[in-house]
Amino acid sequence: MYLNIFANGQQPLDMTDTDEFRSLLDSAADLGIPHARDIAYRSCNVVLRQMRFHFLDWGAADAPPIVLLHGGHQSAHSWDLVSLHLAQRYRVLALDQRGHGDSEWARDVAYSNHEMSLDAEAFIDTMGLRRPVLIGHSMGGRNAMLLTRRDPSRLGALVIVDVGPELSDKGRAAIAGFVQVNQEFDDLEHFIRNVRQYDPYRPREHIERTVKYNMLERADGKYVSKCDSNPRRLNIVRGSGLLENVSLDDATRFDLPVLLVRGAKSNILAPEAAERFADALPRGTLVTVPDCGHNVHGQNTKGFISALNGFLETQAGASAA
């Protein structure tokens, strides 16, 4: 049994009259996240590459587009506070990537970054988005980089959140460990305690409000992860080969504006690695957000929004000129 609400067919579902949306507004008020009073917010489904994908569509349909790609073991809802804020000026489309959230699980268990990057490319094309800003966190950031390497011209700008060509093995092992021990529970309180220990930056009440997007209730009454539980999912072990990895040399050909956002206490992207990545980018900017680790936009949402808005305003000014 699902614990959250989402569209169950081809017709978009208006989410603004749900308890979930009211809970989100409570979180925004707690954290001081600015947003408009009236926001369009819809749950939608689309078929891409012979699979059903769920996505959240925020803001006016004719506003400049932004596409969001979440990290591993997360969902499109990990961006909700950011999306709520951005929807004042942009059309924001947050995709549940294959095997995650409310999207379909891959029948062939194909969860490589390459396949996911092709999904994101198909999503942009199918939705008719012209040169969107693409924002990706962690796994989603790797997928975004692979898409960019194939064709930077299809994007207006790129935002990479706490990931890069050079990653910490210790940090990846910590994430893998958390994922592996958080698959099945007798009650949600156990999962909430684990998340609180792993992520001390987020208040307990905000974790409680979002747990519904990470777990579902199985027929036997146990709570299990919504992500495909096949061991090959989530890219816990980094894929090998050119299709799966972007190098610093590749980054020198990213001919578009790129914002690299690092959490000041990240255990995944070391300061020196972030600087090397930013230096390799022809039009790259590095911003380090304080008081957060790897999950920058969830742990210091206001700090992330501040960094992102500064970048987006720069791009809007350049377009106007």
Rank of each mutant, 00 (worst) to 15 (best):
D26W: 00
D38N: 13
D228A: 12
M139E: 00
Y201N: 05
A307N: 08
V261Q: 11
R37I: 08
E184N: 15
W79F: 15
N45D: 08
R196M: 10
D14W: 03
M139N: 06
V258Q: 06
N214P: 01
Y41C: 14
N182E: 06
L13D: 05
R22M: 07
D96P: 07
N295L: 12
D220M: 14
I236M: 14
V237W: 06
R232W: 00
H85R: 09
Q50G: 10
P257W: 00
D96G: 11
H77T: 03
H70T: 03
H206R: 14
L248G: 04
A87H: 06
M215L: 15
A307Y: 06
V195R: 11
E275G: 02
V82C: 13
R150F: 03
L81T: 04
A60W: 10
G72C: 02
R172C: 04
F311I: 09
G164S: 09
G171T: 06
A264F: 04
M127A: 11
N309V: 05
F53V: 02
A63V: 12
T314H: 13
L216Q: 09
D220Q: 14
Q50S: 14
G293V: 09
T252A: 12
A270N: 01
R107N: 13
V46R: 02
D199S: 11
W58R: 08
A273M: 00
N113C: 04
L69Y: 08
R209E: 00
L134I: 08
S23D: 07
Q74K: 11
A219Q: 07
Y198A: 14
S240R: 14
P231K: 00
I33R: 06
M127N: 07
A144F: 04
F191E: 04
L243N: 06
A28K: 03
E244G: 02
M15G: 07
L188K: 15
Q180A: 14
H77Q: 15
H206P: 03
A174V: 14
I268G: 08
R202H: 04
L56E: 11
H297E: 05
N300A: 10
P34A: 06
L25E: 13
A273C: 08
I305F: 08
L118N: 05
